[in-house]
Amino acid sequence: MENLSDYFAMGGYARFVWPAYALGAAGLVAVLWLSVKSWKAREDEFAKLKTARDEGAN
C-alpha cells in the first residue's frame, strides 16, 4: 500500500503530473462527446424532416 501511495505522489510532483493527464483525458473526452452529440442530434433532425417530407408527399 505504501508503494502505491508513493507511486501516486509522483516524487512530490503529483499536483503537476496528474492534472496534466486529467486535463488531457477531459479534453479528448469532451471533444468526442460533443462530436457524437451533434452527430446524433442532426441524425434525429434529418429523420424528422424526412418524415415531414413523406407526409407532405402523401
Partner: peptide
C-alpha cells in the same frame, strides 16, 4: 469521421429544409 458525418448531415438538413 464523426464530425464529418455531422457536417454532411447539416448540409443535407439545409437542403431538405429548403425543399420543404
Amino acid at each position: 469521421v464523426i464530425r464529418l458525418r455531422a457536417e454532411l448531415l447539416a448540409a443535407k438538413i439545409r437542403t431538405a429544409r429548403f425543399n420543404l
